[in-house]
């Protein structure tokens, strides 16, 4: 087994892929940081423009969750969609395929770059930009409101200008964290399968599949729930459980897509 999976070789492979892929990666990271800075900067500019009235302060950082989610999906899909783009160009592909490392090792390194590295670097960049701007904001402004929480019987103060990572996040959100990795796996598969314009083709294919899937599910649900009334309170009446199932399925599908990606890599001809 040590000929298929060698930790020494994995390390070498990661270093080698950095030479090929590193520049693209860092540039994407820089663009990402730029976009974050632009959003944060604009929101501060907006507040000053409106003379820092309370309403403006309250909504100043409201863009963050949307930015975070949207850019994360965009970033991870772009990185994953370009990782194996080399295989589409014959001159580069020959060296990639003939490099003396096992297919498994090459695929593991691909997953490392497209999931672990992207996750860590994305969170880091967002953290740093957020830290920088929010520190500045907090030193100049403050905005909070309070309300009475019926469950705990206490008054709760909500700081609206908190650091992004310090906020309380609904636990249900964690159930959806499989989504970027599922997309990453899909776009990675796309970069292996397609030889040109991999990203666009993957994106188009994905959209088509999702649309078809939604249509199909709607029809199925319609069929089963026609002329019916919901009576009992089953397991699935609670939103959390439905989300749990989706999360589980999501993880399974992600692993499956990675499996397909590995197989496609094995069969790749050039």
């Amino acid at each position: 087994m040590n000929n298929t999976l060698n930790s020494n070789r994995l390390g070498m492979l990661i270093q080698r892929q950095w030479i090929e892929f590193g520049k693209i990666y860092l540039m994407s990271l820089a663009v990402l940081a730029g976009i974050f800075i632009a959003f944060y900067g604009y929101s501060i500019y907006n507040v000053y423009r409106q003379n820092a009235d309370n309403h403006a302060l309250q909504s100043m950082l409201s863009f963050r969750p949307y930015l975070f989610v949207f850019m994360s999906l965009l970033f991870i899909t772009i990185i994953s969609g370009t990782y194996f783009s080399n295989l589409g160009q014959k001159p580069k592909a020959i060296f990639e395929l003939l490099l003396p490392a096992s297919k498994l090792e090459k695929f593991f390194v691909a997953i490392f770059y497209t999931t672990i590295l992207t996750t860590v670097s994305y969170l880091l960049v967002f953290f740093l930009v957020d830290l920088g701007f929010v520190s500045y904001i907090r030193s100049n402004f403050s905005s909070s409101y309070s309300y009475f929480d019926q469950e705990s019987g206490r008054e709760v103060v909500v700081d609206q200008l908190m650091f992004f990572y310090k906020q309380e996040i609904n636990s249900k959100v964690y159930l959806m964290t499989f989504l970027p990795y599922l997309l990453s796996a899909l776009f990675l598969l796309g970069s292996i399968m397609f030889t040109k314009f991999q990203y666009i083709k993957s994106a188009v294919l994905l959209t088509v599949y999702i649309l078809l899937y939604i249509l199909f599910m709607l029809k199925v649900i319609q069929f089963f729930t026609q002329d019916t009334i919901r009576i009992s309170e089953g397991v699935f009446s609670e939103e959390v459980n439905i989300l749990r199932v989706i999360c589980g399925l999501g993880v399974l599908v992600t692993v499956a897509v990675w499996g397909i990606g590995y197989l496609r890599l094995k069969e790749k001809e050039v």
């Binding site: 000929n3 160009q89 001159p91 020959i94 060296f95 003939l98 096992s102």
Partner: peptide
């Protein structure tokens, strides 16, 4: 594409690419 086989093959193609 076993590692032991690949370790013994050098392929010098007509078109190739070297990194910067």
């Amino acid at each position: 594409r076993l590692v032991e086989t690949l370790q013994q093959i050098s392929f010098i193609p007509e078109e190739f690419h070297l990194p910067a």
